[in-house]
């Protein structure tokens, strides 16, 4: 069903993000061995795989948060592989939500929300964010550590929506959260997709994103070993379960 829409975007725009032969190292250990994938504006893709397969490292390598990296990462035609980390967010309009959420304990909820600098136009206003996450408004004066895990997760996403980021890198946002909150997050991803944001979800729980994602990339041993289109997911369930089973 999604096929025709995807086909038109292929013709009209070149990829928003194009990763080629991405290698990454932590100290002596070689974690990514040539990751390749593409993303067009407005798409949602997931990076699936087991723990330690290199999904988080893929995001971190894009942001320059690894010790050493090589290959090519192009966002909107800009090569960002050699840029210092603090310039990448600005050039690529990137918003990053790390796996451990990265809520600052010494900052209030509101300070956390206001921390990331504005990258471009079209970010959500604080009022819009509080409308989307009413809980956050209630706890905005508390420090970042005195709110629930679900609130922390919402805050970690909300603060990058304020910046006008167009490409969101969301790492394991459903991890450890109650099913009802996971459902809320799923609706939120749908909303963000509607708004035309481009999203990479690193997930273990692929059912969470299965209805939303245009594509799934399976990563193992630091390589993309398979690619499954969102529309074909049902047919390939067995294959996917095999990749992800321990």
């Amino acid at each position: 069903m999604a096929e025709p829409a995807a086909a038109t975007t292929v013709k009209t725009s070149e990829p928003l993000l194009s990763v080629r032969g991405l290698n990454a190292f932590y100290g002596e250990s070689h974690v990514l061995h040539g990751i390749d994938f593409d993303l067009r504006e407005g798409e949602v893709v997931t990076l699936l795989g087991r723990n330690g397969a290199g999904r988080t490292t893929t995001l971190r390598a894009m942001l320059g948060l690894v010790d050493r990296r090589s290959g090519s990462v192009k966002v909107r035609g800009h090569e960002i592989i050699d840029l210092p980390t603090h310039r990448i967010a600005h050039l690529g309009l990137l918003g990053y939500c790390p796996e451990e959420r990265g809520i600052f304990a010494s900052l209030s909820v509101e300070e956390n929300l206001m921390l990331p600098p504005t990258l471009g136009e079209g970010g959500m206003s604080v009022e819009e964010i509080y409308r989307m996450f009413p809980n956050l408004e209630e706890v905005r004066r508390r420090t970042g550590m005195r709110i629930s895990g679900g609130e922390q997760q919402m805050l970690a996403i909300a603060r990058i929506l304020r910046t006008g980021a167009r490409l969101l890198l969301l790492d394991e946002i459903t991890e450890g959260l109650a099913p009802v909150i996971v459902k809320t997050l799923g609706r939120m991803i749908g909303d963000l997709k509607q708004r035309g944001l481009t999203i990479i979800l690193v997930e273990q729980n692929f059912r969470f994103a299965s209805r939303l994602a245009d594509r799934h990339y399976v990563i193992e041993h630091g390589k993309v070993i398979d690619r499954i289109d969102g529309a074909d997911l049902d047919k390939n369930m067995e294959r996917l379960n095999r990749y992800l089973s321990v």
């Binding site: 948060l65 980390t85 603090h86 921390l115 990331p116």
Partner: peptide, 15 residues
């Protein structure tokens, strides 16, 4: 204060 706590993430935000 954020930079003291987690410089890497603050950097990733573009600071």
């Amino acid at each position: 204060r954020a930079g003291v706590e987690n410089p890497e993430l603050v950097q990733a935000f573009g600071i």
